[in-house]
Write a protein that binds this DNA or RNA. Structure first.
Lengths: 149, 149
DNA sequence: CTAGCTGCAAAGCGTTTGCACGATG
DNA sequence: CATCGTGCAAACGCTTTGCAGCTAG
C-alpha cells in the first residue's frame, strides 16, 4: 500500500509530525472501509497498541479533517461518523427505523447543488450527504401496519 | 389563536395530559417562529414561569415529536434545533463559516426525493433538510483569501 | 383515585481541554 | 534541542433517567 506513504507525505508537508499513533489511526481508518465512530477507531487501534487514548483519536481526526483526508458526517445517532475521504463523492440513505445504510451516487445531488448555487449564491458542500428516511423493507412494514389498524 | 386549542386537542386525543408546562412550552415554540434549541425554549418559558426544568422541556419535545407537532434538526452545532411543524415543507442552507441560515423551498428536493424513491425504493423524509456549505458572502471571502495567498 | 407528569438531582454520553512527560524532525 | 504530540484525568455541554411528590382527567 503506497497510499499510506502518500498520506504520510501529506501530513508531513502540512507541517505536522508523523507519530506512530497517527499512522495507526490512519491505517485503521483506511482499513475500516466505511463509516467509523471515534470509539470504533479507538477499539481498532487498541487491538495493536492498547495505550492510545480517545483524545488522541479525536485530535488526529481533527487534523486529518483539516487536511481533507477524512470527512465527518452526523448520522443522527448522537455520535459522529468519520470516513476516509475517497475521491468519488457519495451519499447515504439511512433508515431511521432499522438503521440500514445504503449508498447512492452523486448524480442527483449534483443537480441539486447546481440549482442551489445558481439560485441562492450559496455554495453547498454536497460531497457526503446523509438522507434519512425509510428503507424499502421498513416502508413496506409500515404500510402493512397502517392497513392492519 | 385557535391553533393553541387545536394543538391541545391533538395532545389530549393522543391520551396525554394537558399540563400548564406543556402549554407554555408549546406556546413558546410557536412564538419562536423558527429554530430553537431546548435551552432557548427553557429560557423563554422561564420568563413567565421560572420553575420549569430542562428535563420537562426535553420530555415535552419528545412527546410533540411523536405527535409530529415539532420537527427535530441537527444543525451541526452540537445541539439540536426544534421547530414547530409547519405545513409547508422547507429547508435550510447553513453556512459553516458564519452560521447564517437561509431558507429555501422544497421544489428541488422534491425532485431529488422522487428520484431516490424510484431508483432505490428508499422513502426519504425530506420535509426539513439541512444543507451545509458556504453562503454568498463567505464563499466570496474565501475566494479572496485564496487569490491573496 | 390513579396514571401520568413534574422538578430535582445525578448520571450518561460523546467530545474537549489542561497539563506534564515524551518523541519527532 | 525546540516544538509538537501524547496519555491521563478532569471538565464540558447536551441529553437522559430515577425518584418522590403532585395533578389532570
Amino acid at each position: 500500500m503506497s497510499c499510506e506513504q502518500d498520506t504520510a507525505g501529506v501530513i508531513r508537508r502540512a507541517g505536522h509530525k508523523l507519530t506512530p499513533q497517527r499512522m495507526m489511526i490512519l491505517t485503521a481508518l483506511r482499513h475500516a472501509g466505511g463509516h467509523v465512530t471515534a470509539s470504533d477507531l479507538l477499539g481498532r487501534v487498541q487491538r495493536d497498541y492498547p495505550y492510545v487514548d480517545i483524545s488522541t483519536v479525536y485530535r488526529t481526526l481533527h487534523t486529518l479533517k483539516q487536511l481533507r483526508l477524512v470527512t465527518e458526517t452526523d448520522m443522527g445517532t448522537g455520535d459522529t461518523a468519520y470516513e476516509w475521504a475517497r475521491s468519488e463523492r457519495h451519499h447515504h440513505l439511512i433508515c431511521t427505523a432499522c438503521g440500514a445504510v445504503e449508498e447512492i451516487n452523486h448524480e442527483h445531488l449534483d443537480r441539486l447543488g447546481g440549482d442551489i448555487e445558481r439560485e441562492y449564491g450559496f455554495r453547498p458542500v454536497l460531497d457526503h450527504f446523509a438522507i434519512f428516511g425509510l428503507c424499502r423493507d421498513c416502508s413496506r412494514a409500515e404500510d402493512q401496519e397502517e392497513s392492519d389498524s
